[in-house]
Computed example of a mutant assay.
Amino acid sequence: MKTILVVLDGLSNQVAQHAMGYLFAECRQGHGQYYTLSCELPSLSRPLYECILTGIPPVQSGIIHNGVSRLSTQRSIFHYARAAGLTTAAAAYHWVSELYNRTPFTAARDRHTVAPELPIQYGHFYHDDSYPDSHLFEDAESLRLTHDPDFLLIHPMNIDDAGHKHGLSSPPYRNRARMADGYLSQWMPGWLAAGYQVLVTADHGMNDDRSHGGTLPEETQVPLFVFGAGFSLQPDLQPQQTELCGTVCALLNIAHDKPVCQGLLAEPRG
């Protein structure tokens, strides 16, 4: 099943609970389900991109802070998908390109990637935290329409950017979450109508000190929304961030060796 993973960078669960009106509307119609999960530690971006995409916690992967700039030594969803002959794409922050394609990121070479031999074959990668989420979603839809990927990562940054500038309990932060929900309302109905399985989550949250990295609930509690026929939509599950990689691989029906949240799936898969 073709799958889209949306990582809304920096979206704290406590804001997601009241800001994501469209996503909750789809859930109330029986099209999806909302869960809360705890991110791994430290609650920082690059370590948690690696965790989400490989299922490996930061202290095991070695990507333990944002300054670790090297290719991942782990197998990611992109690697498993390519080994199975599937097509991959990402509209994401440039650290994702540095983890799985090439490092250091060279904008002239890597910003618009068409490289069938790499783990992420097709990509639009940005390096400015204020790059508009509206453009990022358009980049992602362009990749989807042009390359028909089996797995597509969509990773906007404006929620996190607003949090670092204004803090958790600020109108700009909350409104950026609402804007992301609005962009999803523009694009997600088409994805679901086309049969995609869609997961919407976050890497970490945000605190009132305009930062993250520690253990506060507002930093570590993040949402997980799932939509599509591949999901059981059972309530009261407790998915783990380390299970997202394996669960996506199971949806893609590809071989992998990662933990899976079997309860999320409509049918048990390895």
Rank of each mutant, 00 (worst) to 15 (best):
T3L: 10
T3C: 10
I4E: 08
I4L: 06
D9V: 01
V15H: 01
A16Y: 00
A19D: 07
M20A: 15
Y22A: 11
L23F: 10
C27F: 02
H31D: 06
Q33V: 12
L37R: 12
S45E: 06
P47V: 05
I52G: 05
G55A: 13
G62N: 00
G62K: 01
I63S: 01
V68R: 14
R75N: 07
H79M: 13
Y80N: 05
A81M: 11
R82V: 10
A83F: 02
A84I: 00
L86F: 08
A89C: 06
Y93W: 15
W95I: 11
W95F: 11
N101K: 12
R102P: 00
T106I: 03
A107M: 05
A108T: 04
A108D: 09
R109F: 02
D110S: 09
R111A: 14
R111D: 04
H112P: 05
T113H: 04
T113L: 14
V114G: 09
P116W: 07
P116S: 09
L118M: 06
Q121Y: 03
D128G: 06
S130L: 11
P132C: 14
D133C: 02
S134C: 11
E141P: 07
L145T: 11
D148E: 12
F151I: 14
L153P: 05
L153T: 02
D160K: 12
A162Q: 07
A162C: 07
A162V: 03
G167S: 08
S169Q: 10
P171H: 07
P171C: 14
Y173D: 02
N175S: 04
A177K: 10
M179I: 10
M179H: 15
A180D: 08
A180Y: 00
S185F: 01
S185G: 05
S185K: 10
W187I: 12
W187S: 07
P189S: 07
P189A: 13
W191H: 13
G195Y: 07
Q197A: 02
V200C: 01
T201G: 13
A202C: 09
D203K: 11
G205D: 02
D208H: 08
S211I: 12
G213E: 01
E218P: 00
V222P: 06
L224R: 00
F231A: 07
D236R: 01
D236Y: 02
P239G: 09
Q241M: 12
T247V: 01
T247D: 08
V248K: 00
C249I: 05
A250V: 15
L251Y: 09
L251T: 11
L252D: 01
L252H: 00
I254K: 04
K258H: 13
P259A: 10
P259D: 14
V260K: 01
C261Y: 11
E267L: 13
P268A: 06
R269K: 14
